[in-house]
Design a protein around this nucleic acid. Structure first.
Lengths: 347, 347
DNA sequence: TTGTAAGCGTTATCAG
DNA sequence: CTGATAACGCTTACAA
């Protein structure tokens, strides 16, 4: 180990600054700035000299000092509930791709499904002077008054939020799922819904029920179970449903993890899916490819969700002051192997 | 729509600064800084006055200007191949949790498995004066000379990299997998390995082969297939293997997605897993819970990988100048249902 | 077309 | 213990 009497880390070799460029190119600091930003015209000769110096010294502008001056960074704050939830990575990717193309960078925060942590992050983010923020709320709690940057909410909507948003047609998606089961001939249909304080869930279930009603299919209260948004919850709720008499011939799960749990419950009950019980999920996670049978599911365009949100945010950043926009993306039924005709009507 | 003659967005209400605090508390700017940073002692009376002003005005320090002065932000740059790959989210989460606790924030970049994009991001990151960088390399390409901040490499190792790193015992993990299959009685064992330019893969396969050799189990070259790191690759390679005579009784897959593909190939070939063909994967992704049968796999501690890397980085940030450290985490065999005795030796 | 200088919000040095 | 003041690296009027 090298002897080092000083307790301090030696100062890192400092970066190349515009001063260095100016000195080497024999021009003033302002001129360097002019060629870099291209807002003020500069003679070709000087421009070339400056450019040469930039290349030779490998100069890279300092985002921070620039931000301090212009009052805005090229940072986009993104606050999500939990990157570990398989629905979110592709949303994040959608945001990042759109951001990267426009030369913005992503400051990612996991609020951990904790509104307090979410708030802490939102406040903290403002210290970075972000160009804008994208939020996937942890639940539908009310948002405190925001800072001075544009904000777009994705997926779930905070209570009373009427700023920009990008969501999917949860209500329509629910209807689609109901129509599919009804068309297959199901009459005994059960629902495993998710947590009540998540706005998307309510919409899905309401759409589902509405479509059933339209088709004069009634569903008694004990056929509706509320679960957490995971596999265990789906398993437990489905177990309860499968013991009912008459046993439901189909189960609508409010998301795919619940659907996977329900599938396991069917198997654990020595029943077959889809021959005895059909299952239909929501989300279109890739895990639905791997189950046996592959899950029929209402697919959300998760990547598009992020991408659209970022594009909307960009327009705000560029000064678009139109009234709040609410972009709603379509869902799509992906028919696979977990739903077919109910046993009684089978030929 | 409101009439708005000006094309410019009205200047946002500017944030509260230290000047505002100073004015309200009737002290100088420097004094405010002193109470905030606590490095210089301040009389209780003045401290209270300043603190009161801070609370009343809801002051939050500006990270950017602070960074400009101190030459360091509380940002951690993290460059990963693709957040959409199910192995990475939990690594990211591990990093973020450790970072958050120490009051650092995460700047996340998807290099998209593209070394050029990776390099671009690494350069760009330095413009934010990050306190440090965590990199999961896209492949084993050589790293260019880095900037002045500490860097920790996770998982895959760049060629010639001898700085700090956190990896898992891929070699040992491979041996474990081999030992498990051998103990079950398998003799006809095949391998579907991943891309050659990813350092982790080679280690897994080498460990696997070494253990087989030690046990005097030979494996002919056509039993080893190279696949991409995904399900399709696994499916195709496994299909080829299953047509060989004698047919392998077990397949070692270099990662879980490959294993899932292999499982589908077994089913498509009208064979049963594990009765006819055993499969063992690597990673311990949650998808292995959902397949039928559930996959036996060598589990990597992905969250720990990120967490340990961030803690190592923190120690560097705080000035630890010890020689490069190479942390190697253990893998663990998770025995589930996809591997059992080969058909011939079954009682 | 080029240069000068003020200022963004902090920290840190040095007098008072 | 408190207060001026320079400096961090950059942008931007404005002057030359």
């Amino acid at each position: 180990m090298p002897t080092n009497k000083s307790t301090k880390v030696p100062a890192a070799a400092s970066r190349i600054t515009m001063h260095d460029i100016a000195r080497r190119a024999n021009v003033s600091l302002g001129t360097v700035s002019h060629v870099i930003n291209g807002k003020v015209s500069v003679s070709d000769e000087v421009r070339a000299r400056v450019q040469k110096a930039i290349d030779e010294l490998g100069y890279q502008p300092n985002h921070l000092s620039r931000a301090l001056r212009t009052n805005r960074t090229n940072l986009i704050g993104m606050v999500i509930p939990d990157i570990t939830n398989p629905f979110f990575p592709s949303v994040v990717r959608g945001v990042e791709d759109a951001a990267f193309r426009a030369n913005y960078r992503l400051l990612l925060c996991n609020a951990d499904n904790d509104p307090a942590k979410e708030l802490a992050y939102m406040n903290d983010l403002s210290s970075f002077m972000p160009a804008g923020i994208i939020l996937i709320p942890s639940d539908n709690h009310k948002l405190p008054t925001l800072g001075q940057y544009p904000l777009v909410c994705i997926d779930r909507q905070p209570l009373g939020w009427n700023g920009d948003s990008v969501t999917v047609e949860n209500f329509e998606g629910g209807k689609t799922a109901a129509a599919h089961l009804a068309q297959l001939g199901h009459k005994q249909i059960a629902i495993v819904q998710g947590p009540e304080n998540v706005s998307t869930v309510g919409d899905r279930v309401r759409g589902f029920l509405k479509e059933l009603k339209r088709r004069k299919i009634t569903i008694s209260p004990e056929y509706i179970q509320a679960s957490s948004f995971d596999q265990e919850g789906g398993y437990l709720c489905a177990m309860r449903l499968l013991r009912l008499v008459p046993r439901p011939t189909a189960i609508f799960a409010a998301n795919d993890l619940i659907a996977v749990g329900a599938l396991q419950a069917v198997k654990a009950s020595k029943l077959r899916c889809p021959q005895d019980v059909s299952i239909i999920g929501f989300d279109g996670l890739s895990v639905t490819d791997f189950t046996e049978p592959a899950l029929t599911s209402v697919v959300q365009p998760s990547y598009q969700l992020g991408h659209a949100a970022m594009r909307l945010l960009l327009s705000r950043i560029e000064g678009d002051t139109a009234p709040p926009r609410h972009i709603v993306l379509e869902t799509q039924l992906k028919v696979r192997d977990s739903a077919q005709e109910p046993p009684t009507t089978r030929r």
